[in-house]
């Protein structure tokens, strides 16, 4: 929960997050040269999501914030998801049979 004192994160955590991000970047580069078929995009996205997650949780201190702040942070991602989902419903159904022929 929130408190009047800001959370002090040990430097070690920052270095670990930095190492994770570098490793993630290397992994992204590595998998870009492998062919996973239809999984190519999901794999790249999964790595990106993990990287974004550690940035949000540790660099942006959301991990130590109140539930209200967490809810707002999560709200942004949920809304991003709705943007993708409702846009893709257009793209995925464009090739369907027309309603009237």
């Amino acid at each position: 929960m929130s408190s009047t004192h800001p959370h002090i994160t040990p430097l070690k955590v920052y270095f670990l997050v930095f190492a994770t991000l570098i490793a993630g970047t290397w992994l992204t580069y590595f998998v870009a040269y492998k062919d996973f078929g239809w999984l190519n995009t999901p794999v790249a996205m999964a790595i990106a999501i993990v990287k974004a997650g550690v940035v949000v949780l540790y660099f942006m201190h959301v991990k130590w914030q109140s539930r209200l702040t967490m809810m707002f942070a999560a709200g942004g991602f949920i809304w991003l998801f709705t943007l993708f989902a409702f846009t893709l419903q257009d793209y995925f159904t464009r090739s369907w049979m027309p309603l009237y022929q």
Binding site: F86, Q89, D90, Y91, F92, T93, R94, W96, L99
Partner: peptide, 10 residues
């Protein structure tokens, strides 16, 4: 140019 099906949902 939006899909008719998406249009119905919206």
């Amino acid at each position: 140019g939006q899909s008719t099906y998406a249009g119905v949902v919206f």
